[in-house]
C-alpha cells in the first residue's frame, strides 16, 4: 500500500512528536517525564532535519543533527544532575512543588 514515503510524511510525524513533547512538558508533573518530553521535542526536530537533508540532497542538515545530539546529551546530564539535587532536597520529583522563583 505504501507507495513512497515523501517529505510530507516526515513533517506530519515530526510535528506530531513535537506536539506530544510540548503537551507532555506542560501537563506532566514528574520532572523525569518532563525531561523525556523535552528529548522528544529535540528528536522531532532531528527527524525533520534529517528528512529535509535527504530531500534537498544537502548533508549540512545531518551534520547539525550530530551537534544537537551532543548538546542534548550534555543537557540531559545537567538536567538529571539538577533533578538528583532537587530530589535530595524535596524528596520528590514533582515540578509543581518548585515555586521558589516567586520570591
Amino acid at each position: 500500500m505504501i507507495t513512497e514515503v515523501t517529505a510530507e510524511h516526515y513533517i506530519i510525524l515530526a510535528t506530531t512528536l513535537f506536539v506530544i513533547g510540548v503537551a507532555g512538558v506542560l501537563i506532566r508533573r514528574n520532572a523525569i517525564v518532563v525531561l523525556m518530553c523535552v528529548e522528544l521535542m529535540l528528536n522531532a526536530v532531528n527527524l525533520l532535519m534529517v528528512a529535509f537533508s535527504s530531500h534537498h540532497k544537502d548533508s549540512a542538515g545531518q551534520l547539525f543533527v550530530f551537534f544537537i545530539m551532543v548538546v542534548a546529551a550534555a543537557e540531559v546530564a545537567v538536567g538529571l544532575a539538577i533533578l538528583v539535587m532537587v530530589y535530595r532536597n524535596t524528596r520528590s520529583t514533582d515540578v509543581s512543588l518548585l515555586d521558589q522563583l516567586k520570591n
Binding site: L26, R29, V95, S96, L98, D99, Q100, L101, K102
Partner: peptide, 14 residues
C-alpha cells in the same frame, strides 16, 4: 501571573 510555578511559566512561553 508571577506565581513562581515553573509549569505556568512554560505555559506562558508556549
Amino acid at each position: 501571573i508571577q506565581n513562581g510555578n515553573v509549569e505556568y511559566y512554560l505555559l506562558y512561553m508556549v
